[in-house]
Design a binder for these strands. Structure first.
Lengths: 227, 227
DNA sequence: ACCTGAACACCGTTCAAGT
DNA sequence: ACCTGAACACCGTTCAAGT
Protein backbone atom coordinates (compact mmCIF):
# COMPACT_ATOMS: atom_id res chain seq x y z
CA UNK A 1 0.00 0.00 0.00
CA UNK A 2 1.33 3.42 -0.84
CA UNK A 3 1.23 4.59 2.72
CA UNK A 4 4.04 7.14 2.53
CA UNK A 5 2.84 8.72 -0.71
CA UNK A 6 1.19 11.98 0.42
CA UNK A 7 -1.92 11.61 -1.71
CA UNK A 8 -0.60 12.74 -5.10
CA UNK A 9 -3.47 15.04 -5.92
CA UNK A 10 -3.97 14.11 -9.56
CA UNK A 11 -3.23 17.18 -11.65
CA UNK A 12 -6.04 19.38 -12.90
CA UNK A 13 -6.25 22.65 -14.74
CA UNK A 14 -7.36 24.32 -11.52
CA UNK A 15 -4.35 23.00 -9.64
CA UNK A 16 -1.97 24.04 -12.41
CA UNK A 17 -3.35 27.59 -12.53
CA UNK A 18 -3.32 27.86 -8.74
CA UNK A 19 0.33 26.90 -8.59
CA UNK A 20 1.18 29.14 -11.54
CA UNK A 21 -0.33 32.10 -9.71
CA UNK A 22 1.76 31.27 -6.65
CA UNK A 23 4.92 31.03 -8.75
CA UNK A 24 4.13 34.37 -10.37
CA UNK A 25 3.78 36.00 -6.97
CA UNK A 26 6.88 34.42 -5.52
CA UNK A 27 9.33 34.48 -8.41
CA UNK A 28 7.92 36.88 -10.95
CA UNK A 29 7.16 36.47 -14.64
CA UNK A 30 10.61 35.14 -15.51
CA UNK A 31 10.32 32.59 -12.72
CA UNK A 32 7.23 31.06 -14.27
CA UNK A 33 8.54 28.34 -16.57
CA UNK A 34 6.99 25.05 -17.49
CA UNK A 35 9.93 23.19 -16.00
CA UNK A 36 9.83 25.16 -12.77
CA UNK A 37 6.07 24.79 -12.48
CA UNK A 38 6.39 21.07 -13.13
CA UNK A 39 8.93 20.73 -10.35
CA UNK A 40 6.64 22.39 -7.84
CA UNK A 41 3.81 20.08 -8.81
CA UNK A 42 6.19 17.11 -8.62
CA UNK A 43 5.59 16.28 -12.21
CA UNK A 44 7.60 16.26 -15.40
CA UNK A 45 7.14 19.50 -17.42
CA UNK A 46 5.33 17.76 -20.24
CA UNK A 47 2.61 16.58 -17.88
CA UNK A 48 1.32 20.16 -17.74
CA UNK A 49 0.47 20.04 -21.42
CA UNK A 50 -2.39 17.71 -20.68
CA UNK A 51 -4.18 20.51 -18.79
CA UNK A 52 -2.95 23.54 -20.66
CA UNK A 53 -2.59 24.02 -24.41
CA UNK A 54 0.77 25.78 -24.14
CA UNK A 55 2.44 28.51 -22.14
CA UNK A 56 0.26 31.24 -23.68
CA UNK A 57 -2.84 29.36 -22.61
CA UNK A 58 -1.37 28.98 -19.13
CA UNK A 59 -0.79 32.71 -18.96
CA UNK A 60 -4.28 33.57 -20.17
CA UNK A 61 -5.72 31.34 -17.50
CA UNK A 62 -3.70 32.76 -14.65
CA UNK A 63 -4.29 36.33 -15.81
CA UNK A 64 -8.02 35.87 -15.78
CA UNK A 65 -7.67 34.60 -12.23
CA UNK A 66 -5.80 37.74 -11.28
CA UNK A 67 -8.51 39.94 -12.77
CA UNK A 68 -11.12 37.92 -10.92
CA UNK A 69 -9.46 39.03 -7.68
CA UNK A 70 -10.38 42.66 -8.30
CA UNK A 71 -13.23 43.44 -5.89
CA UNK A 72 -16.05 45.31 -7.61
CA UNK A 73 -17.39 48.37 -5.76
CA UNK A 74 -20.97 48.63 -4.56
CA UNK A 75 -23.42 48.75 -7.47
CA UNK A 76 -25.39 51.69 -6.12
CA UNK A 77 -22.52 54.16 -6.18
CA UNK A 78 -22.64 57.42 -8.05
CA UNK A 79 -20.89 57.13 -11.44
CA UNK A 80 -17.95 59.20 -10.23
CA UNK A 81 -17.46 57.34 -6.99
CA UNK A 82 -18.04 54.05 -8.75
CA UNK A 83 -15.42 54.65 -11.44
CA UNK A 84 -12.96 56.01 -8.90
CA UNK A 85 -13.47 53.02 -6.63
CA UNK A 86 -13.13 50.66 -9.58
CA UNK A 87 -9.88 52.27 -10.67
CA UNK A 88 -8.44 52.16 -7.16
CA UNK A 89 -9.60 48.59 -6.82
CA UNK A 90 -7.83 47.57 -10.02
CA UNK A 91 -4.65 49.32 -8.98
CA UNK A 92 -4.65 47.82 -5.49
CA UNK A 93 -5.11 44.29 -6.79
CA UNK A 94 -2.42 44.71 -9.41
CA UNK A 95 0.02 46.00 -6.80
CA UNK A 96 -0.65 42.87 -4.78
CA UNK A 97 0.28 40.74 -7.79
CA UNK A 98 2.82 42.89 -9.60
CA UNK A 99 4.01 40.13 -11.90
CA UNK A 100 0.69 39.97 -13.71
CA UNK A 101 0.68 43.61 -14.77
CA UNK A 102 3.01 43.33 -17.76
CA UNK A 103 1.23 40.37 -19.35
CA UNK A 104 -2.20 41.84 -18.60
CA UNK A 105 -1.27 44.96 -20.55
CA UNK A 106 0.46 43.11 -23.36
CA UNK A 107 -1.91 40.27 -24.14
CA UNK A 108 -5.03 41.15 -26.08
CA UNK A 109 -7.11 38.41 -24.50
CA UNK A 110 -10.27 39.28 -22.66
CA UNK A 111 -11.44 36.76 -20.10
CA UNK A 112 -14.79 36.51 -18.34
CA UNK A 113 -13.51 38.36 -15.28
CA UNK A 114 -12.48 41.33 -17.42
CA UNK A 115 -15.95 41.40 -18.92
CA UNK A 116 -17.57 41.40 -15.49
CA UNK A 117 -15.34 44.29 -14.53
CA UNK A 118 -16.38 46.20 -17.62
CA UNK A 119 -20.02 45.47 -16.92
CA UNK A 120 -19.71 47.27 -13.61
CA UNK A 121 -18.29 50.35 -15.29
CA UNK A 122 -20.92 50.40 -18.02
CA UNK A 123 -23.59 49.97 -15.43
CA UNK A 124 -22.70 53.00 -13.30
CA UNK A 125 -22.19 55.21 -16.33
CA UNK A 126 -25.35 54.26 -18.17
CA UNK A 127 -27.20 54.47 -14.88
CA UNK A 128 -26.05 58.08 -14.60
CA UNK A 129 -27.41 58.90 -18.01
CA UNK A 130 -24.29 58.85 -20.14
CA UNK A 131 -24.78 57.77 -23.73
CA UNK A 132 -23.61 54.32 -24.74
CA UNK A 133 -20.74 55.80 -26.72
CA UNK A 134 -19.65 58.06 -23.91
CA UNK A 135 -19.95 55.20 -21.45
CA UNK A 136 -17.63 53.08 -23.53
CA UNK A 137 -15.16 55.86 -24.07
CA UNK A 138 -15.26 57.08 -20.51
CA UNK A 139 -14.69 53.65 -19.04
CA UNK A 140 -11.92 53.00 -21.55
CA UNK A 141 -10.11 56.17 -20.52
CA UNK A 142 -10.29 55.31 -16.83
CA UNK A 143 -9.09 51.75 -17.35
CA UNK A 144 -6.40 52.72 -19.84
CA UNK A 145 -5.06 55.30 -17.45
CA UNK A 146 -5.19 52.90 -14.53
CA UNK A 147 -3.45 50.03 -16.28
CA UNK A 148 -0.92 52.38 -17.85
CA UNK A 149 -0.16 53.96 -14.51
CA UNK A 150 0.32 50.62 -12.80
CA UNK A 151 2.39 49.27 -15.67
CA UNK A 152 4.78 52.18 -15.24
CA UNK A 153 4.58 52.03 -11.47
CA UNK A 154 5.35 48.39 -10.81
CA UNK A 155 8.84 48.17 -12.30
CA UNK A 156 9.75 51.37 -10.45
CA UNK A 157 8.59 50.17 -7.08
CA UNK A 158 10.67 47.09 -6.48
CA UNK A 159 13.32 47.97 -9.00
CA UNK A 160 15.84 45.20 -9.26
CA UNK A 161 19.49 45.40 -8.34
CA UNK A 162 21.28 48.09 -10.31
CA UNK A 163 18.07 49.83 -11.24
CA UNK A 164 17.24 51.11 -7.82
CA UNK A 165 14.76 53.92 -7.93
CA UNK A 166 17.39 56.22 -6.49
CA UNK A 167 19.33 55.81 -9.72
CA UNK A 168 16.53 57.58 -11.51
CA UNK A 169 16.92 60.62 -9.33
CA UNK A 170 20.64 60.49 -9.95
CA UNK A 171 19.87 60.87 -13.64
CA UNK A 172 18.24 64.18 -12.77
CA UNK A 173 20.97 65.37 -10.45
CA UNK A 174 23.70 65.42 -13.06
CA UNK A 175 21.68 67.49 -15.52
CA UNK A 176 23.33 70.38 -17.32
CA UNK A 177 21.12 73.11 -15.95
CA UNK A 178 21.59 75.41 -18.90
CA UNK A 179 20.19 72.73 -21.24
CA UNK A 180 17.24 71.75 -19.05
CA UNK A 181 16.35 74.79 -16.95
CA UNK A 182 12.72 73.81 -16.38
CA UNK A 183 13.52 70.24 -15.41
CA UNK A 184 16.14 71.57 -13.02
CA UNK A 185 13.60 73.95 -11.52
CA UNK A 186 10.88 71.36 -11.10
CA UNK A 187 13.31 68.71 -9.82
CA UNK A 188 10.93 65.87 -10.60
CA UNK A 189 11.32 62.90 -8.31
CA UNK A 190 11.06 59.35 -9.46
CA UNK A 191 9.21 58.49 -6.27
CA UNK A 192 6.52 61.09 -6.90
CA UNK A 193 6.07 59.71 -10.37
CA UNK A 194 4.52 56.58 -8.97
CA UNK A 195 2.85 57.71 -5.78
CA UNK A 196 -0.73 57.27 -4.75
CA UNK A 197 -1.16 61.04 -4.84
CA UNK A 198 -0.03 61.12 -8.44
CA UNK A 199 -2.50 58.38 -9.31
CA UNK A 200 -5.40 60.18 -7.67
CA UNK A 201 -4.44 63.44 -9.27
CA UNK A 202 -4.67 61.94 -12.75
CA UNK A 203 -7.82 60.06 -11.89
CA UNK A 204 -9.56 63.23 -10.75
CA UNK A 205 -8.48 65.01 -13.93
CA UNK A 206 -10.06 62.28 -16.00
CA UNK A 207 -13.25 62.14 -13.96
CA UNK A 208 -13.54 65.92 -14.22
CA UNK A 209 -13.24 65.61 -17.96
CA UNK A 210 -15.85 62.86 -18.15
CA UNK A 211 -18.17 64.88 -15.92
CA UNK A 212 -18.31 67.55 -18.58
CA UNK A 213 -19.91 65.15 -21.02
CA UNK A 214 -23.69 65.43 -21.29
CA UNK A 215 -25.37 63.16 -18.76
CA UNK A 216 -27.86 63.08 -15.95
CA UNK A 217 -31.41 61.90 -15.88
CA UNK A 218 -33.94 64.44 -16.99
CA UNK A 219 -35.08 65.79 -13.65
CA UNK A 220 -37.87 68.31 -13.22
CA UNK A 221 -36.04 71.24 -14.84
CA UNK A 222 -34.90 71.21 -18.44
CA UNK A 223 -32.84 74.20 -17.49
CA UNK A 224 -30.05 75.44 -19.74
CA UNK A 225 -31.23 73.20 -22.55
CA UNK A 226 -30.47 76.12 -24.77
CA UNK A 227 -29.27 79.60 -24.03
CA UNK B 1 44.76 41.62 -50.91
CA UNK B 2 41.33 41.23 -49.41
CA UNK B 3 39.58 42.40 -52.53
CA UNK B 4 36.32 40.55 -52.03
CA UNK B 5 35.90 41.49 -48.36
CA UNK B 6 33.24 44.22 -48.42
CA UNK B 7 34.93 46.57 -45.98
CA UNK B 8 34.08 44.89 -42.69
CA UNK B 9 33.07 48.03 -40.83
CA UNK B 10 34.72 47.38 -37.49
CA UNK B 11 31.99 47.06 -34.90
CA UNK B 12 31.09 50.00 -32.68
CA UNK B 13 28.42 50.68 -30.10
CA UNK B 14 26.69 52.94 -32.60
CA UNK B 15 26.63 50.21 -35.23
CA UNK B 16 25.35 47.64 -32.75
CA UNK B 17 22.52 49.88 -31.57
CA UNK B 18 21.61 50.82 -35.15
CA UNK B 19 21.30 47.20 -36.14
CA UNK B 20 19.44 46.33 -32.93
CA UNK B 21 16.85 49.00 -33.74
CA UNK B 22 16.45 47.52 -37.22
CA UNK B 23 16.01 44.03 -35.81
CA UNK B 24 13.44 45.32 -33.35
CA UNK B 25 11.44 46.90 -36.16
CA UNK B 26 11.68 43.90 -38.45
CA UNK B 27 11.31 40.97 -36.10
CA UNK B 28 9.96 42.35 -32.85
CA UNK B 29 11.21 42.09 -29.30
CA UNK B 30 11.48 38.31 -29.35
CA UNK B 31 13.47 38.52 -32.57
CA UNK B 32 16.16 40.61 -30.90
CA UNK B 33 18.66 38.08 -29.56
CA UNK B 34 22.39 38.38 -29.18
CA UNK B 35 22.90 35.48 -31.55
CA UNK B 36 20.57 36.88 -34.16
CA UNK B 37 22.07 40.33 -33.89
CA UNK B 38 25.53 38.87 -34.19
CA UNK B 39 24.56 37.04 -37.36
CA UNK B 40 23.32 40.23 -39.01
CA UNK B 41 26.55 41.99 -38.13
CA UNK B 42 28.52 38.99 -39.41
CA UNK B 43 30.07 38.47 -36.06
CA UNK B 44 29.99 35.84 -33.35
CA UNK B 45 27.46 36.70 -30.57
CA UNK B 46 30.15 37.23 -27.97
CA UNK B 47 31.75 39.98 -30.04
CA UNK B 48 28.81 42.22 -29.13
CA UNK B 49 29.79 42.12 -25.48
CA UNK B 50 32.79 44.29 -26.26
CA UNK B 51 30.43 47.20 -27.09
CA UNK B 52 27.53 46.47 -24.80
CA UNK B 53 27.60 45.41 -21.18
CA UNK B 54 24.84 42.83 -21.59
CA UNK B 55 21.42 42.52 -23.14
CA UNK B 56 19.85 44.94 -20.68
CA UNK B 57 22.39 47.55 -21.60
CA UNK B 58 21.69 46.90 -25.27
CA UNK B 59 18.00 47.43 -24.66
CA UNK B 60 18.52 50.65 -22.72
CA UNK B 61 20.62 51.99 -25.55
CA UNK B 62 18.18 51.16 -28.28
CA UNK B 63 15.22 52.45 -26.26
CA UNK B 64 16.84 55.81 -25.76
CA UNK B 65 17.32 55.93 -29.53
CA UNK B 66 13.64 55.28 -30.03
CA UNK B 67 12.70 58.08 -27.64
CA UNK B 68 15.11 60.39 -29.45
CA UNK B 69 13.01 59.89 -32.57
CA UNK B 70 10.02 61.62 -30.99
CA UNK B 71 9.80 65.04 -32.64
CA UNK B 72 9.24 67.80 -30.10
CA UNK B 73 6.50 70.32 -30.94
CA UNK B 74 7.19 74.03 -31.44
CA UNK B 75 8.34 75.68 -28.20
CA UNK B 76 6.00 78.65 -28.48
CA UNK B 77 2.81 76.65 -28.35
CA UNK B 78 0.11 77.23 -25.79
CA UNK B 79 0.38 74.75 -22.90
CA UNK B 80 -2.67 72.85 -24.06
CA UNK B 81 -1.64 72.62 -27.69
CA UNK B 82 1.90 71.84 -26.65
CA UNK B 83 0.97 68.94 -24.38
CA UNK B 84 -1.52 67.61 -26.92
CA UNK B 85 1.07 67.77 -29.70
CA UNK B 86 3.65 66.12 -27.46
CA UNK B 87 1.29 63.29 -26.59
CA UNK B 88 0.36 62.73 -30.23
CA UNK B 89 3.99 62.87 -31.18
CA UNK B 90 4.92 60.22 -28.64
CA UNK B 91 2.10 57.98 -29.76
CA UNK B 92 2.91 58.36 -33.46
CA UNK B 93 6.57 57.51 -32.93
CA UNK B 94 5.75 54.51 -30.78
CA UNK B 95 3.33 53.21 -33.40
CA UNK B 96 6.13 53.42 -35.96
CA UNK B 97 8.31 51.27 -33.71
CA UNK B 98 5.79 49.09 -31.90
CA UNK B 99 8.38 46.68 -30.53
CA UNK B 100 9.89 49.31 -28.27
CA UNK B 101 6.67 50.09 -26.42
CA UNK B 102 6.70 47.15 -24.01
CA UNK B 103 10.30 47.62 -22.88
CA UNK B 104 9.89 51.40 -22.68
CA UNK B 105 7.01 50.94 -20.25
CA UNK B 106 8.67 48.16 -18.28
CA UNK B 107 12.20 49.41 -17.78
CA UNK B 108 12.70 52.11 -15.18
CA UNK B 109 15.66 53.66 -16.99
CA UNK B 110 15.54 57.28 -18.01
CA UNK B 111 17.82 58.24 -20.88
CA UNK B 112 18.84 61.72 -22.03
CA UNK B 113 16.20 61.73 -24.76
CA UNK B 114 13.46 61.12 -22.21
CA UNK B 115 14.74 64.03 -20.16
CA UNK B 116 14.69 66.32 -23.17
CA UNK B 117 11.12 65.28 -23.81
CA UNK B 118 10.18 66.06 -20.22
CA UNK B 119 11.92 69.41 -20.45
CA UNK B 120 9.58 70.40 -23.26
CA UNK B 121 6.54 69.53 -21.19
CA UNK B 122 7.78 71.37 -18.12
CA UNK B 123 8.60 74.36 -20.26
CA UNK B 124 5.14 74.86 -21.75
CA UNK B 125 3.43 74.29 -18.41
CA UNK B 126 5.62 76.55 -16.35
CA UNK B 127 5.47 79.09 -19.14
CA UNK B 128 1.70 79.09 -18.78
CA UNK B 129 1.93 79.80 -15.08
CA UNK B 130 1.34 76.38 -13.58
CA UNK B 131 3.11 75.71 -10.30
CA UNK B 132 6.12 73.43 -10.32
CA UNK B 133 4.16 70.71 -8.56
CA UNK B 134 1.23 70.97 -10.93
CA UNK B 135 3.58 71.03 -13.89
CA UNK B 136 5.17 67.79 -12.78
CA UNK B 137 1.87 66.14 -12.03
CA UNK B 138 0.18 67.40 -15.15
CA UNK B 139 2.95 66.23 -17.43
CA UNK B 140 3.09 62.90 -15.65
CA UNK B 141 -0.61 62.33 -16.21
CA UNK B 142 -0.36 63.10 -19.90
CA UNK B 143 2.66 60.87 -20.44
CA UNK B 144 1.31 58.05 -18.28
CA UNK B 145 -1.94 58.07 -20.20
CA UNK B 146 -0.13 58.20 -23.53
CA UNK B 147 2.28 55.38 -22.80
CA UNK B 148 -0.45 53.30 -21.19
CA UNK B 149 -2.73 53.80 -24.15
CA UNK B 150 -0.07 52.84 -26.64
CA UNK B 151 1.02 49.86 -24.54
CA UNK B 152 -2.54 48.55 -24.67
CA UNK B 153 -2.98 49.56 -28.29
CA UNK B 154 0.06 47.98 -29.90
CA UNK B 155 -0.60 44.32 -29.12
CA UNK B 156 -4.17 44.81 -30.28
CA UNK B 157 -3.25 46.34 -33.60
CA UNK B 158 -1.16 43.69 -35.24
CA UNK B 159 -2.42 40.89 -33.07
CA UNK B 160 -0.59 37.70 -33.86
CA UNK B 161 -2.12 34.56 -35.33
CA UNK B 162 -4.85 33.17 -33.12
CA UNK B 163 -5.30 36.44 -31.28
CA UNK B 164 -6.79 38.35 -34.17
CA UNK B 165 -8.59 41.42 -33.01
CA UNK B 166 -11.81 39.92 -34.31
CA UNK B 167 -11.50 37.26 -31.63
CA UNK B 168 -11.95 39.94 -29.03
CA UNK B 169 -15.28 40.92 -30.48
CA UNK B 170 -16.21 37.28 -30.54
CA UNK B 171 -15.72 37.25 -26.79
CA UNK B 172 -18.44 39.88 -26.59
CA UNK B 173 -20.79 38.20 -29.01
CA UNK B 174 -21.30 35.08 -26.93
CA UNK B 175 -22.19 36.97 -23.78
CA UNK B 176 -25.12 35.83 -21.67
CA UNK B 177 -27.17 38.98 -21.98
CA UNK B 178 -28.96 38.49 -18.67
CA UNK B 179 -25.64 38.50 -16.82
CA UNK B 180 -24.13 41.47 -18.64
CA UNK B 181 -27.02 43.65 -19.80
CA UNK B 182 -25.06 46.89 -19.96
CA UNK B 183 -22.15 45.37 -21.85
CA UNK B 184 -24.62 43.84 -24.26
CA UNK B 185 -26.29 47.22 -24.74
CA UNK B 186 -23.07 49.14 -25.27
CA UNK B 187 -21.58 46.44 -27.52
CA UNK B 188 -18.06 47.68 -27.03
CA UNK B 189 -15.82 47.03 -29.97
CA UNK B 190 -12.20 46.01 -29.65
CA UNK B 191 -11.36 48.25 -32.60
CA UNK B 192 -12.79 51.33 -30.93
CA UNK B 193 -10.79 50.56 -27.84
CA UNK B 194 -7.60 51.46 -29.65
CA UNK B 195 -8.67 54.06 -32.17
CA UNK B 196 -7.27 57.53 -32.64
CA UNK B 197 -10.65 58.94 -31.63
CA UNK B 198 -10.48 57.08 -28.34
CA UNK B 199 -6.99 58.42 -27.71
CA UNK B 200 -8.01 62.01 -28.40
CA UNK B 201 -11.10 61.64 -26.26
CA UNK B 202 -9.04 60.66 -23.24
CA UNK B 203 -6.41 63.25 -23.97
CA UNK B 204 -9.02 66.02 -24.04
CA UNK B 205 -10.49 64.77 -20.77
CA UNK B 206 -7.09 65.03 -19.14
CA UNK B 207 -6.29 68.43 -20.60
CA UNK B 208 -9.68 69.69 -19.43
CA UNK B 209 -8.85 68.47 -15.97
CA UNK B 210 -5.43 70.10 -15.98
CA UNK B 211 -6.95 73.31 -17.25
CA UNK B 212 -8.95 73.60 -14.07
CA UNK B 213 -5.79 73.87 -12.00
CA UNK B 214 -4.80 77.40 -11.05
CA UNK B 215 -2.60 78.92 -13.72
CA UNK B 216 -2.24 81.83 -16.09
CA UNK B 217 -0.22 84.99 -15.87
CA UNK B 218 -1.97 87.79 -14.07
CA UNK B 219 -3.42 89.73 -16.96
CA UNK B 220 -5.21 93.06 -16.65
CA UNK B 221 -8.48 91.77 -15.28
CA UNK B 222 -8.66 89.84 -12.05
CA UNK B 223 -12.18 89.06 -13.08
CA UNK B 224 -14.10 86.28 -11.38
CA UNK B 225 -11.46 86.07 -8.70
CA UNK B 226 -14.29 85.70 -6.31
CA UNK B 227 -18.00 85.63 -6.84
C1' DA C 1 42.04 45.87 -28.15
C1' DC C 2 39.04 43.18 -30.39
C1' DC C 3 37.12 38.89 -31.89
C1' DT C 4 36.51 33.57 -31.60
C1' DG C 5 34.96 28.74 -30.03
C1' DA C 6 33.48 25.73 -26.92
C1' DA C 7 30.81 25.09 -23.08
C1' DC C 8 27.16 25.77 -19.24
C1' DA C 9 22.76 26.22 -17.53
C1' DC C 10 18.76 27.32 -19.03
C1' DC C 11 14.13 27.79 -22.27
C1' DG C 12 9.31 25.85 -24.87
C1' DT C 13 7.83 22.13 -27.30
C1' DT C 14 7.57 17.57 -30.37
C1' DC C 15 7.42 12.89 -30.52
C1' DA C 16 7.35 8.15 -29.31
C1' DA C 17 6.52 5.37 -25.33
C1' DG C 18 4.90 3.70 -21.26
C1' DT C 19 0.82 2.42 -17.85
C1' DA D 1 -6.57 9.13 -20.16
C1' DC D 2 -2.69 10.62 -18.08
C1' DC D 3 2.17 10.83 -17.34
C1' DT D 4 7.24 9.98 -18.78
C1' DG D 5 11.97 10.44 -21.13
C1' DA D 6 14.73 11.70 -24.58
C1' DA D 7 15.54 14.88 -27.94
C1' DC D 8 15.43 19.39 -30.82
C1' DA D 9 16.17 24.01 -31.58
C1' DC D 10 16.71 27.69 -29.20
C1' DC D 11 18.31 31.37 -25.18
C1' DG D 12 22.12 34.69 -22.34
C1' DT D 13 26.47 34.44 -20.68
C1' DT D 14 31.31 32.69 -18.74
C1' DC D 15 35.76 31.48 -19.69
C1' DA D 16 39.97 30.48 -21.98
C1' DA D 17 42.12 31.44 -26.29
C1' DG D 18 43.51 33.42 -30.33
C1' DT D 19 45.43 37.65 -33.18
Amino acid sequence: MSRSAPTKPRLSREAVLDEAMAVLDERGLDGLTMRNLGDRLQVVPMALYRHVRNKDDLLDGVLDRAVSLVPLPAPDLDWRDGLAALARSVRATMLEHPAVVAPVVQRPSLGPSAIALGEYGFSVMRGAGFSDTDSERGLNVVLTYTLGFVALEVPRHHAGPGTDIADLDVAYDGLPIELYPHTAAVRPSAAGFVSEEQFDFGLECILDGIGQLPHGRRRRARATKRA
